[in-house]
Amino acid sequence: MDVEPMILLMVAAGGALGSMSRLAVGNGVSAWLGAGFPWGTLAVNLSGALLMGLLAGAVGLPGPEAPRPGWALLAVGLLGGYTTVSSFSLQTLLLWRQGRTGAALANVLVTLLAGFAALGLGVWLAGGLT
């Protein structure tokens, strides 16, 4: 697959900003709510889903062609770097291994269901898909 250099730069720039934002928001929420549950990762993933919904609702979903520079910067780079399935998965596994089965299952269910709801809310707030 051929990717234009400008698209790669947009994804890299967005990814850097998204990753730094994830660290700041995740740490801030964890400091505020405590480290007994992965609140920081949950807040990041739910806010990322809401932001993705707002973006998709405002500009529409990309087609099968190469991503537009704005989509590459915001959706693929920024929000791709901001949200984190790997941290979510690791923290769920740690809860499970600590014998906190209910917390592990709650983390999965809340992340998936509330994430999908946040995405839908974002699309709705942005006026729907165009």
Score class of each variant (00 low, 15 high):
Val25Asp: 06
Arg68Pro: 13
Leu121His: 09
Gly81Ser: 11
Ala66Lys: 07
Ala56Asp: 05
Leu78Cys: 04
Gly102Arg: 13
Met1Val: 04
Leu129Tyr: 13
Gly53Met: 04
Leu105Cys: 07
Thr84Asp: 06
Leu93Cys: 00
Gly18Thr: 13
Ala126Thr: 14
Ser89Glu: 09
Gly128Asp: 13
Leu54Ile: 07
Gly26Trp: 09
Ala49Gln: 02
Gln98Leu: 12
Ile7Val: 15
Gly77Asp: 05
Val44Phe: 09
Asp2Gln: 06
Gly80Asp: 06
Gln98Tyr: 01
Leu78Ala: 11
Leu33Trp: 12
Leu93Ile: 11
Gly122Ala: 04
Asn107Glu: 09
Gly14His: 12
Gly57Thr: 08
Leu113Ala: 10
Val59Ser: 06
Ala16Ile: 15
Asp2Met: 02
Ala104Lys: 04
Ala12Gln: 02
Met10Asn: 03
Val29Met: 09
Thr84Arg: 01
Val123Ala: 11
Gly53Asn: 06
Ala104Leu: 02
Gly60Trp: 15
Leu9Glu: 04
Val11Ile: 15
Gly128Val: 05
Gly115Val: 00
Thr130Ser: 10
Gln91Gly: 07
Leu46Asp: 07
Leu90Ile: 07
Ala24Asn: 01
Leu109Phe: 12
Leu61Met: 14
Leu74Trp: 15
Ala24Ser: 10
Pro69Val: 01
Arg68Trp: 01
Glu65His: 13
Gly63His: 08
Val44Met: 10
Glu4Phe: 00
Gly80Asn: 06
Leu54Met: 11
Met10Glu: 02
Ala56Ile: 14
Gly57Glu: 03
Thr41Tyr: 06
Leu112Ser: 12
Ala16Leu: 15
Leu74Phe: 15
Val123Leu: 11
Gly36Glu: 12
Val29His: 04
Arg68Val: 08
Leu55Asn: 02
Leu93Met: 10
Gly36Ile: 12
Trp71Gln: 08
